[in-house]
Design a protein around this nucleic acid. Structure first.
Length: 302
DNA sequence: ATGCAGGCGCGCA
DNA sequence: TGCGCGCCTGCA
């Protein structure tokens, strides 16, 4: 994997050549993050852009070349390489998953989802986003998150050359911190159409800003099970949401979120298993889950 | 129109 | 301890 830097007017970019098992489209379209959109009229084969870690960024691919717009080399090393998990060996992971789950279902799912990367998102953003996701659909989840960012996130300045790489729906605001959300109050959160989740979000942000709950500490706990239990102390966070936060916000690859799609997978293909759980799939169960989820949801399992 | 969308909390045996 | 129901809202 070779890294190059370049410049378009005032906009720096980084080019990554030869990234193995990395598919932008699948990574950003598999439902793990809510602030990235496909750029329809892109001059690249595939391009997704959005906001993460307080920066507007665009990821564009042509063959095995990935271009990251509006990023310096330093940003790439510090933010985008870990965010995209480009330092993780997915051939080893896929090998381990297939070792644990022999059979055509997992083999097909693994092939179909080839190139999906579990992003390392900001843990706080993941906490709030997945509280919002409960009993909800993806377009509305995205709408609510955008409204939250627009209301109390910080405006992000971008070089003019970045414009064509951004989606119109992007508010160009950072995801707010716990303090900013707390200022909104439960009522303010409710007015952003969060519905019955307003009290859950408010409980989360008050626990975070008071220091009662530390995502850094939770992320450092020994076992993923402990992480999930600690996250479940927030109202409105149950096993599924906590597993998503651990998987997508803390790189706990053994966290295994069980949602309706995975329940369908369990019934359809693993009905003979008495105790279907993440433990069947080994230390990368969460990534196996993502393959199965993507396979069932976007291919209908056929 | 009614059911549903990547769940969870609560009340009730 | 376990299970069923109601929930904000928008969309088909």
């Amino acid at each position: 994997m070779n890294i190059f830097e370049g410049q378009e007017g005032n906009m720096p970019f980084v080019e990554v050549v030869g990234a193995d098992r990395f598919d932008i489209g699948r990574t950003f379209d598999c439902g793990q993050c809510f602030r990235f959109e496909k750029i329809v009229c892109s001059k690249h084969e595939c391009e997704y852009s959005g906001v993460a870690f307080g920066r507007a960024v665009s990821f564009a691919s042509d063959g095995d070349t990935l271009r990251i717009y509006n990023s310096t080399r330093e940003d790439f090393e510090r933010i985008w390489r870990p965010f995209l998990s480009l330092d993780v060996d997915y051939s080893e992971i896929d090998g381990d998953i297939l070792l644990h789950s022999r059979g055509t279902v997992m083999e097909n799912a693994c092939a179909y989802g080839q190139g999906i990367r579990i992003l390392r998102q900001d843990a706080f953003e993941a906490l709030i986003s997945f509280i919002i996701s409960q009993n909800n659909n993806i377009p509305r989840i995205k709408k609510i998150i955008e409204a939250i960012c627009l209301t109390c996130g910080n405006k992000i300045d971008i070089p003019e050359e970045m414009r064509p790489h951004l989606s119109e729906v992007s508010s160009l605001c950072s995801f707010p911190d716990a303090h900013a959300l707390e200022q909104l109050g439960e009522q303010g959160l409710y007015e952003l159409k969060t519905g019955f989740r307003a009290k859950y979000i408010y409980d989360a942000v008050t626990k975070i800003s008071s220091g009662e709950l530390s995502l850094v500490d939770i992320g450092a706990l020994d076992s993923t099970q402990e992480c999930i239990e600690a996250l479940c102390r927030v109202k409105g966070v149950g096993p599924k949401v906590a597993s998503c936060i651990a998987l997508f916000g803390m790189a706990r690859y053994d966290a295994f979120p069980i949602d309706v799609w995975i329940k369908r997978v369990a019934e359809k293909y693993f009905s003979e298993c008495e105790d279907f759980s993440g433990e069947m799939f080994g230390k990368y169960a969460g990534i196996a889950q993502q393959y199965l989820f993507y396979y069932e949801r976007y291919l209908g399992g056929e």
